[in-house]
Design a protein around this nucleic acid. Structure first.
Lengths: 253, 253
DNA sequence: ACTTGCACCTCACGTCGCGTGAGGGCCCAG
DNA sequence: CTGGGCCCTCACGCGACGTGAGGTGCAAGT
């Protein structure tokens, strides 16, 4: 029961050259060679290959992979545990990136512009506060942006305007709704929340209820978003958050 | 308001050399040069850099990044949408990998061994059925494995045995529980489910209630896992699934 | 018996995305 | 006028393979 390079390459989804390479650098040396000098991979070799590919997938350089795999006091259980940790960490990171993208989309939708630092927060590889002071010096005051940013905001023309109109119309109706004393978890408020979600979905991206709920929270936690909504009517951000949450609950549950 | 290479490198979390490289290959050419020949990056350049880094992060080769960014009929909205799609796809893939790792852990825990194909399913980059017939020829019948696999299963010795004993003990008590006619959502069954979860957590990895629920489903859907549990007592797999679900519900909600 | 074909082998050079100096210029502080 | 700091342009190196080029072992068709 041993497999040739071609067979291994096939099931593992790698090229033959890759297997040759791993042999060359000693990362995965087939446990046997046939009479004709052909590489013969055992089941144990396949197991090792699987581990190699796993760590490679997560961005480990091959020499480090060799180190972790050849560590004598790491049994298979330890590897599985480690892999599970790495995966969940990775997933979390991507979810943060996704949240950042949603954040950026919302910023566009409202014509709010982000500072350079915020734009790169997606890749959150540094302490955001650490360089805060330094950034002030480097980048000057925020007003400088407000202008330069407002220009860049205009790079979609017609439909950008149309979309803004939709938002304004929605805002006016939400204002009226609040004047009428409607509760956030009332039918009409939820309908407005749903319309809000639809607006995002049609103009930007598929906004799930889960995402929508996250946005609702952001509208009160992020000052600029709060300011944007409260400019339509004081307290609207807070009210909307409730409506979004109520609307999400009834659709999810 | 323009930034030097050093400043840009700092906020973006890349090296100066990287920026030089992107300039060389025409991927990100700073919109201006200072009197002394120094690169001056504008806000728009920063935006572009952010996009570049984003697609790079997701594994795009730089020339393809150039293509998507220079596509004239792709406005910023389209990019954000695309990025969101890519991220969610990526997250899903990682979650499947995590599920596969959990699957592998369960297989180890029970001494069930997987076929080579199954081991590489983690990287699910091919249609599993497409090569099914071919695989039969290549790998021979499953009985051949059953043996060769059983050997490899022995590569943790002492504590592997101890763990097996724990499982056996638990099985005997679950058997008794069923003989007593306990319901899956009864207190005692839930306690056994919780013990089951704890067993996994102490021996393998942090088994959340969500993961546990997934395992419960697998115990009835995957033949070998079902066979393993039903070998303790017929119908145990099904009963356990219910107990796990009930136990998860009371802890989550 | 012969060749055709396939899957394997070993060099060995090419590519991509940078890392890492080497050698030099601009400008401000001491 | 001499450092020190940040910038510049070559230009070679490296990791993880891709991509032929040229040769071997073996089963199947003519």
């Amino acid at each position: 029961m041993s497999y040739s390079v071609g067979q291994v390459a096939h099931v593992a989804g790698v090229t033959v050259r890759t297997l040759h390479h791993y042999d060359e650098i000693g990362l995965l040396v087939p446990s046997e060679r046939s009479h004709a000098g052909h590489r013969c991979y055992s089941d144990a070799d396949l197991d090792r290959l699987q581990q190699v590919l796993f760590y490679r997938e997560l961005g480990f350089p091959l020499d480090e992979v060799a180190v972790v795999l050849d560590d004598p006091d790491a049994d298979p259980r330890a590897h599985l545990r480690r892999q599970h940790r790495l995966l969940t960490a990775r997933i979390e990171k991507l979810q943060k990136m996704a949240a950042a993208v949603e954040h950026a989309m919302e910023a566009r939708r409202m014509g709010i512009n982000l500072t350079p630092e915020e734009k790169f927060e997606v890749f959150g590889d540094k302490d955001p506060e650490q360089y805060a002071e330094e950034a002030e010096q480097r980048w000057g005051n925020t007003e400088a942006y407000a202008e330069s940013q407002r220009r860049t905001a205009s790079y979609t023309k017609d439909d950008w305007k149309r979309m803004q109109d939709e938002v304004a119309d929605w805002g006016a109706r939400y204002d009226a709704l609040m004047t009428a004393g409607e509760s956030p978890d009332g039918e009409r408020a939820m309908a407005m929340a749903e319309e809000h979600r639809q607006h995002i979905t049609t103009w930007f991206y598929e906004c799930t209820y889960e995402i929508h709920r996250g946005l609702g929270e952001m509208y009160v936690s992020d000052e600029r978003f709060k300011a944007f909504y409260d400019s339509m009517r004081p307290g609207l951000a807070e009210h909307l958050r409730g409506a979004i949450a109520a609307n999400a609950s009834r659709h999810e549950g």
